[in-house]
Simulated assay, not measured.
Amino acid sequence: MTNEKIVIEPVSGKKGRAQFVDLGRRFAAKVPNSVPQLRSEQLELVDPDRNPFFGHAEAQLFIARRGGEAVGRISAQIDHLALAIPVEQGMGPGTGMFGYFDAVDEEVGKALLAAAEGWLRERGMTHVLGPISMSIWEEPGLLVKGHDHSPTMMMGHHPPHYRAWIEAASYEKAKSLLTYDLDITQEFPPLVQRIVQSGERNPRITVRPVDLANYQSEMEIILTILNDAWSTNWGFVPFTPEEVAYAGKKMRPIIHAPLNRIAEVEGRPVAFMMTIPDMNAVLKDIGGKLFPFGWIRLLRWLKKPTGADMRVPLMGVLKEFQNSRLASQLAFMMIESIRQEATRRYGSKRGEIGWILEDNRGMVAIAETIDSRINREYVIYRRDL
Rank of each mutant, 00 (worst) to 15 (best):
M1F: 13
V7A: 14
I8M: 07
G13C: 06
G13E: 01
A18G: 03
V21I: 15
R25E: 14
R25C: 06
R26F: 00
P32R: 08
P36T: 12
E41S: 14
E44M: 12
E44K: 15
E44L: 12
N51W: 01
G55W: 00
E58W: 01
F62S: 02
F62K: 05
R65L: 10
R66H: 00
R66L: 01
G68S: 03
G68F: 05
V71Y: 09
I85K: 09
E88C: 01
M91H: 09
G99F: 08
F101M: 07
A103N: 10
A103T: 11
E107D: 14
K110M: 14
E117N: 13
E117D: 12
G118Y: 02
G118L: 11
L120A: 14
E122T: 06
H127P: 04
G130R: 02
P131C: 10
I132Y: 07
P140C: 13
H149F: 15
T152P: 02
M153V: 15
M155Q: 13
M155F: 10
P159N: 07
H161W: 14
R163P: 01
R163A: 14
A164H: 14
A164R: 15
W165I: 15
E167S: 10
A168S: 15
S170K: 14
Y171L: 08
L178N: 03
I184T: 04
F188C: 10
P190Y: 06
P190T: 04
L191W: 06
V192S: 03
V196M: 00
Q197W: 10
G199E: 09
N202V: 09
P203S: 07
T206S: 11
T206N: 11
P209V: 01
A213Y: 00
N214A: 11
S217Y: 00
E220D: 13
L223A: 02
I225D: 01
L226W: 07
N227M: 04
W234C: 02
F236L: 02
V237G: 08
P238Q: 03
F239T: 11
T240Y: 01
P241D: 10
E243R: 07
V244K: 05
A245K: 13
A245D: 10
A247L: 15
M251N: 05
R252C: 03
P253E: 08
A257F: 00
A263P: 06
R268N: 12
A271D: 10
F272T: 09
M274G: 09
M274S: 12
D278F: 10
M279V: 15
M279K: 00
K284D: 13
D285T: 13
D285F: 00
L290I: 05
F293D: 03
G294F: 07
G294R: 11
I296L: 15
R300L: 11
A308S: 15
D309M: 12
R311I: 05
V312S: 06
G316K: 07
Q322H: 06
Q322N: 10
N323P: 02
L326P: 01
S328Y: 08
S328W: 02
Q329I: 03
M334G: 04
S337I: 01
R339P: 02
E341L: 03
E341Y: 03
R344G: 04
R345D: 12
R345V: 13
Y346W: 07
Y346C: 08
G347D: 06
G351M: 11
W355E: 00
G362Y: 11
G362S: 06
I366F: 02
E368V: 06
S372I: 10
N375R: 13
V379P: 04
Y381N: 04
